[in-house]
Write a protein that binds this DNA or RNA. Structure first.
Lengths: 282, 282
DNA sequence: GGAAAAATGAAATTTTATTCCATAATTAGG
DNA sequence: CCTAATTATGGAATAAAATTTCATTTTTCC
């Protein structure tokens, strides 16, 4: 993968002249990425074709391609990974770890989502008579946020984080209603029951949950989100953020489907808040 | 300096044709690093000199040098840039854009946070007699989430998204109480007043807001979060997610400060939920 | 509406990389 | 230790790519 390592590994399969090239590159790779093939050849006291052959031997397409690989190796970035917080971490460390894990999980979540199902969900939502968001605990927060967003669209929308209200609402639902049930684990009994009730009453049930959960089985559409929670801390962190991002996607899909006139309306909603705010000086 | 971000930032200083180039590059940077200047020019429907001028405008020496920078940016882990959703985007496109923008903004937010202030905030929180979270609109959701988290720590914690309750609560606060006020714009009048009231009553006021806002001026500690909201859609998206990640950081700092015994307690809280869930088969 | 400034692309030029091939170096077999 | 075969190497030619120049078009500003 890393071309510098590769050069080191293959050093003994190279010919004498090619090794000269390798040495120049290894000794100052940062200069090389800004050199032409002629400059490098001169530096290594060999000819240009030799440099070219050297590049091919390393499975690159030629000198420019080789420089590209070299540049990437030097950039040597740390891609975002799920790093667990450690007891001895400083504020800076745990802060970085949490942000990075969150980003890594968003990436995971994105990969696990099927755009076709997003599209179907948006279809269903734009045609809904009423939209309900149900969640408990951390997912209640997401449902709450979803209500705030869809409320702006001037469609009937409700959100409940109370089991009884959820049940009653589910029982009262009917064809044309959309019920979005949010649960990372997909195993919360009362929510699974609510989904089932809503379905029995002909509502379209969209589940925001993980793959193959009891909740997923009760849903008309399952938007599955894979995230790996850091269970060390016993608190939902990444899952709810991925859920929120998904809500953003659905809300965006909704506004796009409704067209530009509709977006003017959103602007009005936003402008209506102006008087409650301090002016900007700039 | 990530060149993809740079392109995004300078998008409006570019000429029409140069912007075409920028768009092609942003939409598939991985293709571009393997393209010749001619291929890119053709893809963007402009001439080769324009590509060249574009590269120079971004302070690179020319096209090959630009490709080098681009390659490094891509290797650098984050190809995540703030990309605006477009009217003609497919579900897959707007989904990707939203997730990527969210990630890009989390990165921005992380950079704008000062670990020292995080540390101070955690200090204050661990010693608090009572913790209150206040927010309105999208930030109310964040406050709601914060309550869920801190509630597990077995400390007195409240959350209000009602201006009157917020005011009353602020007036009743006293030394040793911590009030966390959340507002992306930092310009919501009633929240600024609440912060001011709490401060007058000797509570420690922590603001989660942007830099240099009216709210920031009223706070004892300002945790400033820079994010660039996509104002095209008139909905808070990235800001609240960054705020949530910050809440995670604070909550994590809290548990770390309290030590391992305390974390056993968290496990108990989590275990208490077990009976309300379906068992896992695996 | 027109002059000045800015943007753009066609063509020429320059730079850079690659190919071809003759020659030199190395190796293996006697 | 020599010779034929193989491999490595570089000079020159060629091809490809990037850059510069400059005329033309478009935009901006009065």
């Amino acid at each position: 993968m890393n071309i510098l390592e590769k050069i080191t590994n293959e050093l003994d399969t190279l010919s004498k002249s090619e090794r000269k090239v390798a040495e120049v590159i290894l000794s100052s790779p940062n200069t090389v990425i800004h050199s032409s093939i002629a400059a490098l050849a001169k530096e290594a006291n060999i000819s240009e074709p030799t440099v070219n052959r050297f590049c091919r031997r390393l499975d690159t397409k030629g000198y420019p391609d080789f420089k590209l690989h070299l540049a990437q190796s030097l950039a040597n970035g740390t891609p975002y990974v799920n790093r667990h917080v450690d007891e001895t971490d400083s504020a800076e460390e745990y802060m970085s770890k949490i942000f990075e894990s969150t980003m890594a999980n968003l990436e995971l979540a994105r990969k696990s989502l099927d755009p076709m199902l997003i599209n179907r969900s948006v279809d269903v939502l734009t045609q809904a008579n009423k939209i309900s968001f149900f969640g408990l605990g951390a997912s209640a927060v997401v449902a709450h946020d979803a209500q705030n967003k869809f409320f702006r669209f001037n469609v009937p929308v409700v959100y409940f984080d109370d089991i009884l209200m959820q049940r009653m609402s589910a029982i009262n639902s009917r064809q044309g209603d959309v019920v979005i049930v949010i649960s990372h684990t997909g195993r919360t009994k009362s929510l699974v029951e609510v989904a089932s009730l809503a379905k029995e009453n002909d509502a379209t049930v969209i589940g925001i949950t993980s793959k193959d959960t009891p909740l997923a089985k009760e849903c008309s559409i399952v938007l599955s989100l894979d995230v790996s929670e850091d269970t060390d801390l016993y608190m939902p962190m990444a899952s709810r953020i991925a859920q929120l991002a998904l809500i953003d996607v659905l809300a965006t899909g909704f506004t796009l489907r409704r067209g530009s006139k509709f977006r003017d309306n959103l602007k009005k909603v936003k402008d209506s808040l102006r008087s409650s705010r301090f002016d900007r000086k700039d």
